[in-house]
Amino acid sequence: MTTDQRMTRRERLRAETTREITTIALRQMAEDGPGAISLRGIAREMGMTARAIYGYFATRDELITALIGDVSASLADALEAARDAAPADPGSRLLAWGRALREWAVANPEGFRLVYGDPVPGYQPPGEGPADQAGRRICGGLNRLVAEACAAAPANGFDWPDFPPDYRAKVRAEVPDLSPAVAALAVRVWGRMHGLVTLEVFGHLRAVSTDPAALYHAELLDLVNSLAPRS
Rank of each mutant, 00 (worst) to 15 (best):
A66T: 14
A66W: 09
A66N: 09
A66H: 14
S72C: 08
S72F: 06
S72K: 07
S72L: 09
A73I: 01
A73V: 12
A73M: 04
A73K: 09
S74H: 13
L75P: 09
A76I: 05
D77G: 09
D77N: 13
A78Y: 08
E80C: 03
E80N: 06
E80G: 01
A82P: 04
A82W: 06
D84W: 05
A85R: 11
A86Q: 03
A86M: 05
P87N: 10
A88M: 06
D89W: 07
G91R: 15
G91N: 12
G91Y: 06
G91H: 10
S92T: 14
S92W: 06
L95S: 14
L95F: 09
A96P: 05
A96H: 05
W97V: 02
W97H: 15
G98S: 15
R99L: 09
R99N: 11
A100H: 06
A100L: 05
L101Y: 15
R102A: 12
W104R: 03
A105G: 03
A105S: 15
A105T: 03
A107Q: 07
A107H: 05
N108R: 07
N108F: 03
N108V: 08
N108I: 07
P109I: 00
P109A: 08
G111H: 05
G111V: 02
F112Q: 09
F112P: 02
R113V: 15
R113E: 15
V115P: 08
Y116V: 02
D118N: 07
V120Q: 04
V120T: 14
P121H: 04
P121Q: 04
G122I: 00
G122T: 12
Y123R: 04
Y123H: 14
Q124V: 15
Q124M: 13
P126M: 04
P126N: 03
P126I: 09
G127A: 14
E128Y: 13
G129C: 14
P130G: 11
P130K: 10
P130I: 13
D132L: 11
D132S: 11
Q133S: 15
A134T: 11
A134D: 09
A134M: 10
G135D: 09
I138F: 02
I138L: 10
G141N: 02
L142F: 03
L142N: 03
L145N: 01
L145P: 01
V146C: 01
A147L: 11
E148R: 04
A149H: 05
A149C: 15
C150M: 15
A151W: 10
A151L: 14
A151N: 07
P154S: 10
P154R: 07
F158Q: 10
D159C: 13
W160F: 10
W160C: 13
P161S: 02
P161D: 08
F163L: 10
F163N: 13
P164W: 04
P165C: 04
R168A: 00
A169Y: 00
K170P: 00
V171I: 10
R172L: 00
A173D: 01
A173L: 03
E174P: 03
E174Y: 00
E174R: 01
V175A: 01
P176R: 02
D177K: 06
L178T: 00
L178K: 01
L178A: 00
P180L: 03
V182R: 01
V182I: 12
